[in-house]
Write a protein that binds this DNA or RNA. Structure first.
Lengths: 272, 272
DNA sequence: ACAGGAATTTATGTCGACATAATTGAATGA
DNA sequence: TCATTCAATTATGTCGACATAAATTCCTGT
C-alpha cells in the first residue's frame, strides 16, 4: 500500500525518483494533495510546485533562502512563466513569500506565527474532530484504526519519519470524516506551514510518547462518539505541541533564516 | 473619513471612479485589503484583481460567468500575463475557479459550501471574538463604538449598503483586536466568499433587526471582557445568518449559475 | 427540423525578449 | 579598516508570438 503511494509520487516531480528518499516522496504527495488540489493531471506547474514545496518541508531549502525564478527555470529546463505560477501556488499555502519586485524566498516561520497557527488549528481541529466523532462511519473507523496501527508500529520502531507521515495521514483521514471540505482545506494549509518544524518537535522522545498516547485516547473518543472529549483532546494536544515548539525556539533550536546572499549561481554551461 | 477612504480606492482600480457607486468603491477596498494584502503599492495585477473581485462581490459578474483572459486583457488594455496572475489571486480567495485548460469563471457558491463556510466562521470567529474581548485596548473599544454608531445610523436610515459595509468594518476591527493575523486572514477570506450573499440575507428587515441587536450585545460583552459570552453570541449570530441563507436558497432566491455560453465578444474596434 | 460529427475558430499554456527596478561589486573618501 | 556612493550586473514584470487543447460553428444525414 505504501508502495503504490510512492510509485504514484513520481509523476508529480520533475527529477528522477531514484535519488529521493521515501520521506521526500511522502512530502511530495502531501504537498500535491494540498497545493495542486484542483490539478487532476500533473502539469508542469504542479510538478515544480510539488517538488519545491516538498524541498521546503523537508528542509532541503532553508528559511529565507532565495527562490529566484531564473534559477528555478534553469533547473527545471523551462521558462519563467510556469515557475512564477508555481511559486504563486506555494505562496498561497504560506511556504513562499513573493515581495513585489524582489526575489521570492522560502517563508520564514517565526515563533509568533507558529503560535497563531497552533491557536487556530487547535480551535478548528477541535470542531472538526468533534464533528468527525459524531459523523464517523464504520469505514472511517476502519481506516483510522489502521493508521493508528501504523502509527504504533512506527513508534515502536523509533522511526521518526514513518511516525511523522502516519501522523499526517491520521489527521487527514480524520478531517475527511468530518465532511467539511472548507475546514479541511484550511487545516491542510496550516499543517503544511508547520510541517517543517514537526521533525524538530517529534524528535523529542517524551513528545513522541505523549503524541502516541494522545492518538490512542482520541481514537477511543471517536469510536465512542464522544464529541466533546475529542474536541478537548485535540486542543490539549495542540497546546502541548506548541509548548514544545516554544521551548525549541527559545533554545535556538530553529536555524535562523540565512542572511541569504544567494549562493553564487555557478553558471553550469554543461548542457551543450 | 469615508471621503478619504473613497478617494484612496481610485488608485486600486483601472477605470474612472466617476462611474462607480460608493458601494462598489467600498467593495474594492475590502477586496484590496484581502487579496492584495502584501502588495503595498498598487500594481497592474492588483488593480485588475481588485476591480474584478469587487465586480464579483457586487454581483456585476454572476455565478459561473466566464472570465476569459483575452477578454479581460482587452478590457484592461494589457497582456494576458498579469490578467492570469490577477485571476490566480482571486482563485486563492475562492472568488474564481480556474480549471486546467478551461476558461476561468466566477466561482459558484452552492448551499453546501455556504454551510461549511458558516460553520468554520462560527467556530473561528467565536475564538477570535473571545480573544478580542480579553485583549481589547481602549483604542479598540473606541474604534468599535464608533463603528457600532455607524451601524446604528445605517440601520435607522434603512440604508442596506451602508449597513453592510459598516458591518464588514466592525468585524474587521474586531479581528484586529484579537491580535492573530493568521486567524484574521482566514476569516477575511471566508468573508469575501460570502459577501456576494450578504445583501440577500440583510435585505430581510427581520434579519437586519436581529443583526443590529446582536452587535449591541456583542459590543457590551467586549466592553465587559466577557469572553465566553462574546464567543456564544458570535456563534449564535452565525447560525441564524446561515438559517436565513438556507431559506433563501430553498426558495430559489439565489440566481442559478448562467449556463454561460459566453456573451458574444462584440469586437469593439473603437480605439483607433 | 433535429442530432451528431468534422471543420473552424478561439482560448490556454508556454516561450523568449525587452524595459526597468533591485542587487551586487567596485571605487572613493574618511 | 570601514562606510558610502556610483557603475555594472542580474532579476523581475510585462509583452507578443506560437503550439495545442477547447469551444463553437457548420455541415451532413436521417
Amino acid at each position: 500500500m505504501t508502495t503504490t503511494t510512492f510509485e504514484r509520487a513520481d509523476s508529480w516531480i520533475a527529477t528522477p525518483p531514484s535519488s529521493q528518499s521515501e520521506s521526500f516522496l511522502s512530502a511530495v504527495l502531501v504537498v500535491r494533495r494540498i497545493v495542486a488540489e484542483h490539478h487532476d493531471r500533473p502539469s508542469l506547474v504542479s510538478r515544480v510546485a510539488c517538488e519545491v514545496g516538498a524541498e521546503i518541508i523537508e528542509n532541503v531549502r532553508h528559511s529565507g533562502e532565495d527562490l529566484s525564478s531564473v534559477e528555478l527555470a534553469e533547473r527545471y529546463e523551462t521558462s519563467r512563466t510556469p515557475i512564477r505560477e508555481a511559486l504563486l501556488l506555494l505562496e498561497k499555502e504560506g511556504l513562499v513569500r513573493i515581495p513585489q519586485r524582489r526575489r521570492p524566498h522560502v517563508a520564514v516561520l517565526d515563533i509568533a506565527e507558529v503560535r497563531e497557527i497552533y491557536r487556530v488549528r487547535a480551535v478548528l481541529f477541535g470542531a472538526v474532530a468533534s464533528d468527525a466523532a459524531t459523523l464517523r462511519t464504520p469505514e472511517d473507523l476502519a481506516a483510522l484504526r489502521e493508521l493508528l496501527a501504523r502509527l504504533s508500529t512506527a513508534h515502536d520502531a523509533q522511526d521518526l519519519s514513518a511516525y511523522l507521515w502516519a501522523n499526517v495521514e491520521f489527521y487527514n483521514r480524520l478531517t475527511i470524516a468530518a465532511h467539511n471540505a472548507t475546514a479541511k482545506r484550511i487545516l491542510d494549509s496550516l499543517l503544511l506551514r508547520t510541517l517543517r518544524l514537526r521533525r524538530l518537535s517529534l524528535s523529542q522522545p517524551t513528545r513522541r510518547e505523549k503524541s502516541m498516547a494522545h492518538h490512542v485516547q482520541l481514537m477511543s473518543a471517536i469510536e465512542e462518539q464522544d464529541a466533546p472529549l475529542a474536541d478537548v483532546l485535540i486542543r490539549s494536544n495542540h497546546l502541548h505541541a506548541l509548548a514544545v515548539l516554544e521551548q525549541i525556539y527559545a533554545d535556538g533550536g530553529v536555524p535562523s533564516p540565512m542572511r541569504s546572499r544567494r549562493r553564487r549561481r555557478q553558471a553550469a554551461a554543461a548542457t551543450e
